[in-house]
Amino acid sequence: MTERLLTVEELKVSFYTRSGENQAVRGISFHIDAGETLGIVGESGSGKSVTAKAILGLIPPPGKIISGDINYRGKSLSGIAEKKWREIRGNQLAMVFQDPMTSLNPVKKIGAQMTEVIRRHRGLSKSEALKEAIEGLREVGITEPERRVDQYPHEFSGGMRQRVMIAMALSCKPELLIADEPTTALDVTIQAQILDLLKELKKNSNTAVALITHDLGVVAQVCTRVIVMYGGMIMEEGAVEDIFYRPGHPYTQGLLRSVPKRGGGSRERLIPIEGTPPDLLDPPPGCPFMERCPHAFAKCVERPPMFEVGPGQRAMCWLLDNGGDSGE
């Protein structure tokens, strides 16, 4: 039986700026099961990273969780004290951030940064923590880890720094690892190595992974289930095979048309999604994709509910309302 690890219910997150309230996340609900790899995809500004930070209690001012609940193993994380967050964050729930160079302290050796995390959460001695750090670097494919722990971040390549971040995140054996664009700004060869590393993680442990990306190719290689976000909302969710071969939402269909297909060749025509994402300072009351959707009709000025596309697959689109009239 599938074990439910984390549940997000009607989460809303806003940032209060001089220009007004930026409604970054607008009432999303989803879950992550133990051991699964969930892809969270969408264009920049769709709310992916804000959702991840909300899960870990890391929304910075002027941001604020407006409403909703984040439930971990049956217990709500809403409103818990920072001391309790420090026990959970990095221990049961861990995150690999987008840019390892800004996440690592440039003036501290890699070993010191890793052992600090291990000692805080696992209560090991300095020598025991160092052994764990060395073994962690070895597990993510860093050669000569005994020497590498005495080096500084600038002595590592971009791909190596990303491996260090993954090793650090895994050092306390978390149940959920959130990886925010872990292959961004890496060359294709290093990207493949990082993805292989994530696949090995899934095979060798029961760690669940939430992989945040705009790259559908990455999702196809690593994930078992996908959430498609747009305008701070979830447009569609389902198994990878369903999303790629039977997409129910016009936005998902547009994303798939805009990426190269394997074997497509240099003459393959990619079709971009026309227009721009909605302004979340003044978001549309109905479907957020309405202004860019080739199938939009009068009903779209109302926000659609989630409709069942198939077993385990849902999409937020009035075209799926069998009892309605598309007007086409």
Rank of each mutant, 00 (worst) to 15 (best):
L77M: 15
P100F: 09
H31T: 13
P311N: 10
G123T: 12
T224Q: 11
T115R: 03
M306Q: 01
G90L: 10
A220E: 11
C172S: 06
D187Q: 06
M235K: 01
L11F: 08
I66H: 13
D180W: 07
V301M: 13
D150Y: 15
G159T: 02
T115Q: 09
R138W: 07
D99I: 12
D69I: 06
I212S: 01
E144Y: 15
T51Q: 03
K299G: 06
T7S: 12
K109C: 10
T213S: 06
R225S: 01
P294V: 07
Q92V: 11
G63Q: 12
V41E: 02
L211A: 06
N91R: 14
L211S: 08
S258T: 08
R267C: 05
S78K: 13
E302W: 08
I273F: 03
G39E: 03
V309W: 00
L6G: 04
G35I: 02
L176P: 06
Y16L: 12
L170Y: 02
I65W: 11
K199L: 13
S14H: 15
E237I: 00
E3K: 10
Q113N: 06
E139D: 15
A169H: 02
A179R: 00
F244E: 00
V226R: 00
K84N: 14
E21A: 14
C287L: 05
E155L: 09
I190H: 04
Q162T: 08
A220F: 09
S78L: 15
G286Q: 01
I273M: 05
V209K: 08
G158L: 07
G248F: 00
T189A: 04
R267E: 14
E3H: 14
R246M: 09
L216G: 04
D180Y: 04
S76G: 12
D33Y: 09
E10Q: 12
L255K: 00
I271E: 15
T252H: 00
R303M: 10
N105D: 14
L11H: 08
L104N: 04
P277H: 01
R26H: 05
F30S: 02
P304S: 03
L176M: 08
P250C: 10
P272L: 04
M114R: 03
S205E: 13
D33F: 04
V164W: 03
A315N: 02
G27R: 02
R161P: 11
Q151L: 14
S127F: 10
L197Q: 05
M95P: 02
E328L: 14
K12F: 13
G111S: 11
R86K: 08
D150E: 14
